[in-house]
Design a protein around this nucleic acid. Structure first.
Length: 258
DNA sequence: CGAACCTCCTGCGGGC
DNA sequence: TGCCCGCAGGAGGTTC
């Protein structure tokens, strides 16, 4: 997309997580200067102080670049027409996603991005930061690492998997964990994300990347969606419960003894 | 302030 | 076969 010009914007469904504002049409004529990311938010920066487009895929969102004439499919809500003769299609059955124009200036000052914690694969995220976030907190450790103010990018799959690798039970109060165990956890978060990215992500049902390919990290999951199955490390039956309204999986033997 | 709970929405698989 | 129920990758918001 970088270097292309936005010829026009087609909005077929405005009712996303936030309504798509009519001003999105003002992007027409702008050149795409850069595409970046903060947490799970995508940022399309337009040249000439034309501002940015903030995109989030929610749970079911998908971005595809297709030829201009490709027929619209159900749940293709927004299309960005590019000077290449192709369109960026925003497809999102559940409509938990977001397409929002942002004014020129630092997009990180926007309310949705301002309070975000460090990127997990950057130097800014380490055991010291994690320990500070856990100090005094009675919340379950899984909820803490899924809190975007603490660290971004750790969704339900990778929270479960990182806790398994660190040998930590998901429901334990964050403040009860020693610095040494939190150091293991910080490392596990980075490792699991690195490996998942290398595998192209995790396709559970319908995830496809921008080129339409699935991800293969599912084959490397130790606990997620494995309730009742034997632990890959010790054979103990994987357990499941709900924590913060999200499915939570753990091996009672590999993850703590308490 | 933290913690618990709710909400948005469609699709799919399982049970009956 | 068809219907109902529960659950699903996120995350901002409300209430106490």
């Amino acid at each position: 997309m970088v270097g292309r010009t936005i010829r026009g914007v087609i909005v077929r469904e405005r009712r996303l997580r936030q309504p798509v504002p009519p001003s999105l049409a003002d992007a027409a004529g702008a050149r795409i200067a850069a595409v970046s990311r903060r947490g799970k938010y995508l940022i399309v920066t337009m040249g000439g102080s034309r501002g940015h487009l903030l995109v989030h895929l929610g749970m079911s969102g998908r971005l595809r670049v297709v030829r201009q004439a490709a027929p619209f499919r159900r749940h293709d809500h927004v299309a960005i027409e590019l000077s290449s003769g192709r369109q960026l299609r925003c497809h999102d059955p559940r409509r938990f996603g977001l397409v929002l124009p942002l004014p020129a200036g630092d997009p990180l000052r926007h309310p949705l991005l301002r309070g975000l914690g460090p990127e997990p694969l950057s130097e800014m995220f380490n055991c010291t930061v994690l320990a500070a976030a856990c100090r005094g907190r009675r919340a379950a450790i899984k909820l803490v690492i899924m809190d975007a103010r603490v660290v971004v990018g750790v969704g339900n799959i990778y929270a479960n998997e990182a806790l398994f690798r660190a040998g930590i039970r998901p429901g334990i109060a964050a403040r009860r964990l020693s610095g040494a165990r939190l150091a293991r956890l910080a490392t596990a978060i980075r490792t699991v994300l690195d490996e998942a990215i290398a595998a192209g992500g995790t396709t559970l049902r319908d995830f496809l990347d921008a080129d339409g390919r699935p991800g293969y990290f599912r084959q490397q999951l130790f606990v997620y969606e494995r309730a009742g199955a034997p632990c890959r490390r010790c054979g103990t039956t994987i357990r499941q419960r709900v924590l913060g309204q999200r499915s939570t999986y753990w091996c009672p033997r590999c993850q703590g003894s308490a």
